[in-house]
Computed example of a mutant assay.
Amino acid sequence: MPKQTYIPCLLNLLRQYGYDGATLSKISQATGLGKASLYHHFPGGKDEMVEAVLNYLESWLDQNILQTLESPGEPLSRLRQMCDHVDEVYDGGKQPCLSAILLLGSARDVFHDKVKAIYQVWIDAIANVLIESGMNEGLALRRAEDAVTAIQGSLIVSQGLDDPSVFVRLMQHLPENLCKGTLP
């Protein structure tokens, strides 16, 4: 099977155990591949596996978030669609954010630049929608940064409290809060 077949499994393992805890033994057991087969598909080892997962998430972001935000239509509607997609990928706040996990421990030095780029693209896309809705550039950028911060923070708090309603509540009100004072 192509290595893309194993990406969802790897994503779930990384979400569950983190970079350091997702050992090759756990990966082998979850994928059903022996260690030799893992290295056949991912010669760079675990770092290449994580890179493949990040590429998958980057592609998902492009297809589900960026294309939604860049599509024609009313800004508030596009922001609502973005929140629907974010809600879907995090299973209503039940799944932790992989990028936050990869910014901890030994993975930070390896994956920081990639994670940073993903966040920046997302922030810029939100800011562009807000600018289009009539908001000045500086305020749009601050609100976009606050939005991504709130999303990531609500995921952490939801995980910590074992209560995804924190995330769900944020996602329900985020589009309107972003646009306050900009739409007719």
Rank of each mutant, 00 (worst) to 15 (best):
R169A: 12
R169M: 14
D87Q: 14
T31G: 14
D124V: 12
R143D: 06
L24M: 15
W60C: 00
R15E: 08
C179H: 10
S165D: 13
S133A: 15
M1P: 10
L14H: 07
K180V: 13
G34D: 03
W122E: 13
L33N: 04
D162F: 04
S158G: 05
K116R: 10
C9K: 11
R142I: 08
K3D: 06
L98D: 03
F111H: 10
I123S: 05
F167T: 03
G153A: 10
M82H: 02
S59C: 04
P96M: 09
S59L: 12
H112P: 01
W60V: 03
S165I: 08
E88A: 13
L13N: 11
I123G: 00
V89P: 03
N64L: 01
Y6H: 15
I123H: 09
K116G: 02
D113M: 05
T149K: 09
L170M: 02
E48P: 07
T182G: 03
A147S: 13
M49D: 03
L14V: 08
K46P: 01
E132R: 14
L11P: 10
K116P: 00
L57W: 04
E132T: 15
G45P: 02
A144W: 07
Q63K: 11
M171T: 07
D62T: 14
E51Y: 00
Y39I: 08
V157F: 09
S158A: 15
L54E: 05
D87H: 12
V129N: 02
N55F: 05
N177T: 09
G138M: 04
S25V: 13
N55D: 14
W122H: 13
I123V: 14
Q29T: 15
R142L: 09
M1K: 15
Q159R: 14
P96W: 06
V50H: 06
C179G: 05
S99W: 08
I27D: 03
C179Y: 04
E48L: 05
D20Y: 06
K35P: 05
L174P: 01
K180Q: 14
R169P: 00
L54G: 05
K116E: 11
L130R: 00
D84C: 13
L183N: 07
G105F: 03
V166G: 00
G93A: 10
L183V: 14
A107F: 08
A150V: 02
V168R: 14
L183D: 00
